[in-house]
C-alpha cells in the first residue's frame, strides 16, 4: 500500500505542472462521469415522459410521407 501511494505521489503530485494537469484531467473525467450517470438516473425515473422517448413516432412519420 505504501509503495502504491508513494508511486502515485511520484507519478502525479511531485511536479506542480503534472499535478495541475492531473487536476484538470480528473475534473474533466469526473464531470463527464457525473453528468452521464445522473442523466441516466433521471431518464430512468422519467421513462416515457420526455420528448426523446416519444420523438421516434413523429420523426418516422415525417420520413414516410
Amino acid at each position: 500500500m505504501a509503495g502504491l501511494s508513494s508511486s502515485l505521489y511520484n507519478l502525479f503530485f511531485r511536479k506542480n505542472t503534472v499535478m495541475l494537469g492531473t487536476v484538470f484531467a480528473s475534473a474533466f473525467a469526473i464531470q463527464m462521469a457525473f453528468d452521464s450517470g445522473s442523466e441516466k438516473i433521471w431518464d430512468g425515473i422519467n421513462k416515457g415522459r420526455q420528448w426523446k422517448d416519444i420523438k421516434h413516432r413523429y420523426v418516422q412519420a415525417a420520413e414516410e410521407e
Partner: peptide, 15 residues
C-alpha cells in the same frame, strides 16, 4: 404527476 420534484412534463400530454 408533472409537479413532483423528480418528474418532467409528460411530453405526449403536452402535444
Amino acid at each position: 404527476e408533472h409537479t413532483k420534484w423528480s418528474k418532467t412534463f409528460d411530453h405526449q400530454a403536452l402535444r
